[in-house]
Every structure is written in C-alpha cells, then in structure tokens.
Design a protein around this nucleic acid. Sequence first.
DNA 1: GGTCATTTGTACGTATGTATT
DNA 2: GAATACATACGTACAAATGAC
Lengths: 139, 139
Amino acid sequence: MALDHGSPTPLYVQLADMLREQIGSGVYRSGAALPPEDGIGRLFGVGRMTVRRAVAVLRQEGLLVTERGAPSRFREQVERDFIILDRARAVARMPSRKESRLHGLPAGVPLLEIVEADGPVRTVPGDRFGVQGTTSTSA
Amino acid sequence: MALDHGSPTPLYVQLADMLREQIGSGVYRSGAALPPEDGIGRLFGVGRMTVRRAVAVLRQEGLLVTERGAPSRFREQVERDFIILDRARAVARMPSRKESRLHGLPAGVPLLEIVEADGPVRTVPGDRFGVQGTTSTSA
DNA sequence: GGTCATTTGTACGTATGTATT
DNA sequence: GAATACATACGTACAAATGAC
C-alpha cells in the first residue's frame, strides 16, 4: 500500500489512484474532507507538489472539490434532471473558464450543449443535467 | 498585450486566456504547433512552470494536446457521429484514468454515458459522439 | 539504424499570498 | 486576530520521448 518510487508510473498518478480507490470503497463519505496536503505528503513520503498534482487529477475527474483555505472535500453527487431531446442534438465538452464561471461549475464538470433543430443552442451543467430520448421510461 | 503581474488574476490564467484567444482568432490553425514552453516563458517573462499551468488549462479544456518530446499542438476537431436515444438516457462526465486509456481519450474530453431503459450502460468518447432525439432532422 | 538536440514530463524545494475556520 | 490550508510562482535537476540528421 505504499508508493513505488522506482515505478514508471508517476508518483502523483499512483497517489491519485490510491485516493480514488478510497473514495470508491467508501473510506471517505461524500462530502468528507481530505487530510491537508502537507500531511498527505509526509504520510506517503512525497513533496507537497506531488500531492497537489494528485489532487488536481481527481479534481479534473470531478471527484473532489478544493477551495482556498479549506480542506479538499469529496464531491457530493447531486440528482440530475433529464432534458428531453425531441428534435435536438446534444454534445458534451469541457467549458472554457468563462463558461465555468457563468454556470458556477467546479473543475471536472463537462458542459452539455443542446442544439435545437431550428438553431438555438443552450448549455447546461453536466453534473446537474442529463438528456433522454422522447419516450420517458422512468429509469 | 502583456501580462499584468500585479493583477489578482493569476498569471497562468492570463496566459491561458491569451493563448485561447489566439486559437479562436485563427492565429494558429488546427493542428499547428505551439512554441516551446521555455520560449513562451521568455516571451512573456514568466517561468516555465507558469507556462505549463497555462498549457494544462487549455489541455483540460480539450483545446490542445501535448505529448512528451513533441511540441504541443492545437487539437483538431473531428466530425461527430450522433447516437439516437430512443428509450435511453445520457449523461456526461469526466473519465477516470483507466477509462481514458481504454477509449484512447486525450485529456479534456468528457465521456458520454448512455443508459438504456432496460439497463445496459455504454460509454463513448465525448469528442467523437453526440446524442440526438428519436427524430432525425439532419442539422 | 543509431545518435543527438529538442521538448515535454516528473519531482523536488522555497517563498509569499489569501481565503477559510 | 491567529492558525490552518490551499494557491501562485519562482527556481533546479533529471528522465523520457520525439524528430531530425
């Protein structure tokens, strides 16, 4: 359960993998705080920068949120609303910084871009919305 | 057109914004290579780490691809195929590293997860696929 | 085919700033 | 206000992959 400094797999990837697994296995409940970065660093014998890169990986995956001054927390998943695509198409892509701010998106959350058949485009946060075909079948 | 070291906006964000704008305005054509990181750094009077962070921002947005040993290039957009959602739902999320490798996804590309009404789940690369309602209207 | 310069990637350290608690 | 903890930004050194010669 320790990091392998000799491995071709970068340390920050190994560390991210371990933390990700802990999330998946429920070691940390949703919303729970991580130990501080320097603490994690001492724990695993790596520098703080390496910890930060590992944390960045998980943040980009939408698994945790960090804010300045407060411990990083595992992201709580919210219930999604489903938008019915009638004569529309939808594509997923990452938002620009401007769009992130506009929608209040944390890092690691894609945008759903819905293009109506007659032109209009609408973008919605990918963590709060999904899309579905015409027929609702109450999953 | 220079960076403001006194601004509350981080340097790497300012730099990312400038590079993003250059992409949008067509200064770099699709697939074109960026100058090397240390060159950009000297050009703007910032360290290489700051350049790397700016590049990372754009990579996470799916705007450029980087590989070791070769210059970073602006990402070429591929034509998307559209999957018809009949009795299915779709959500967008970021892939884990494992899923990225599985689908050969570069950074900054979300995953489309398609859930059929009767259970089966299928994930497809968000840069190569979109979804659409039952009625095809040939956009 | 192999060598070498170029270029990105990893990983460390240090110092300072700033928001939260 | 003080302590905690994350964010920015500089620097260094070496590793590894690419591409050109």
